[in-house]
């Protein structure tokens, strides 16, 4: 599998570290509740398009949002996380 890093170009997956579901939002400042369970534990885990974080650990160190199909591994898009 390969990802096209916006900084480094098309690189092998071994350079990246996986960060999981990118649609999770940390409920900063909120007390314990469903939002925390959603962030830490619960996953959509779709069979199909999945937005997920990847970290270019052995490259430019950017955190990326990758849209990838979990049934085919085909990568639809790679973007740097919003700054």
């Amino acid at each position: 599998m390969r990802l096209t890093c916006p900084h480094c170009g098309n690189r092998g997956i071994e350079e990246f570290a996986y960060g999981g579901d990118a649609d999770r939002r940390r409920p900063d400042g909120e007390p314990f509740g469903q939002a925390w369970m959603d962030y830490v534990y619960l996953r959509r885990n779709p069979a199909g398009a999945h937005r997920e974080w990847w970290y270019h650990a052995s490259g430019c160190r950017a955190w990326l949002v990758v849209t990838r199909d979990t049934t085919t591994h085909v990568v639809a898009s790679v973007q740097e996380v919003a700054r």
């Binding site: 570290a17 960060g19 940390r26 900063d28 650990a57 955190w63 996380v81 919003a82 700054r83």
Partner: peptide, 13 residues
């Protein structure tokens, strides 16, 4: 290191 990078770039840009 990876955790801090996540915090900085993803959680609190």
């Amino acid at each position: 290191w990876r955790h801090l990078e996540f915090c900085r770039k993803v959680l609190w840009p």
